[in-house]
């Protein structure tokens, strides 16, 4: 599952070896530039797009991967952007929707780059260096760990449902079963949180988080 999320996060390229803060600032600068550039300044937007393309190729992220992510990203953005001119009877608002699509796409590809050059543990370490509250980061770290556990749980429940179903459920039944699956997952998750808490207590958990500073350096 980790491969699915940040697939190229553990590659070794020029971009991956940059210090984490530099990566973060580069991404923020590119997104800021993309969201502030006016749509009428074509060359400027082209320049930003080139810069994004450049960092992507520096990180050796395959173009096909970016294209696939864009394929899933675009429909909701287009829906949102095109609702503007469509609601005006196609007479106005084209410039606005073009702006939204342009800025959205540029910032999305930049964020995609950041995700794929910065593994999650590195992101956590960076956030800690930026002095975010440690409780917040502890919850975030645990959430990331639990995510995979719950995904597996959900997968098992899906399999169990498929095995026991002999016909295609109607639309209403699908909704009902989905919501009840959520409820069941909720119960199991809370029970697991209880067990995890017990295990943490058994290992000396006293409500504060201790980070291993060294771990980050060793991994690099």
């Amino acid at each position: 599952m980790s491969d699915y999320l940040d697939r190229f996060g553990r590659d070794q390229s020029t971009c991956h070896r940059w210090p984490p803060l530099v990566k973060l600032y580069v991404a923020m600068g590119l997104i800021l530039a993309a969201t502030c550039a006016p749509i009428t300044h074509g060359p400027l937007l082209g320049l930003i797009a080139c810069a994004i393309f450049f960092v992507h190729s520096l990180a050796r992220i395959p173009l096909a991967f970016v294209a696939r992510r864009l394929f899933f990203f675009w429909p909701p953005l287009f829906l949102m952007a095109l609702s503007l001119p469509l609601s005006q009877g196609c007479r106005a608002g084209w410039l606005m929707s073009a702006t939204i699509i342009c800025r959205g796409t540029l910032s999305f590809t930049t964020a995609l780059w950041l995700v794929n050059v910065m593994p999650f543990d590195q992101l956590l370490a960076t956030l800690r260096r930026l002095r975010l509250p440690s409780v917040f980061l502890a919850i975030l770290a645990l959430m990331y760990r639990f995510l995979f556990v719950l995904w597996d749980e959900l997968d098992r429940m899906r399999t169990a449902r498929q095995v026991r179903l002999f016909r295609k459920p109607s639309l209403w039944e699908q909704w009902q079963q989905g919501a009840q699956m959520l409820g069941r997952l909720l119960i199991r998750a809370l029970d697991r949180a209880d067990r995890v808490h017990g295990a943490m207590m058994a290992r000396g958990w006293q409500g504060e988080t201790r980070w291993l500073e060294q771990r980050q350096k060793d991994q690099r």
């Binding site: 975030l140 645990l142 990331y144 719950l150 909704w175 989905g178 919501a179 909720l186 949180a193």
Partner: peptide, 22 residues
Amino acid sequence: DRTIPLTGMMAALVFAGQMVNF
């Protein structure tokens, strides 16, 4: 001390719950 694992689990649950398609 109980809040941290519980909140983390709840966040993970909402995230995983959004994977259930309706």
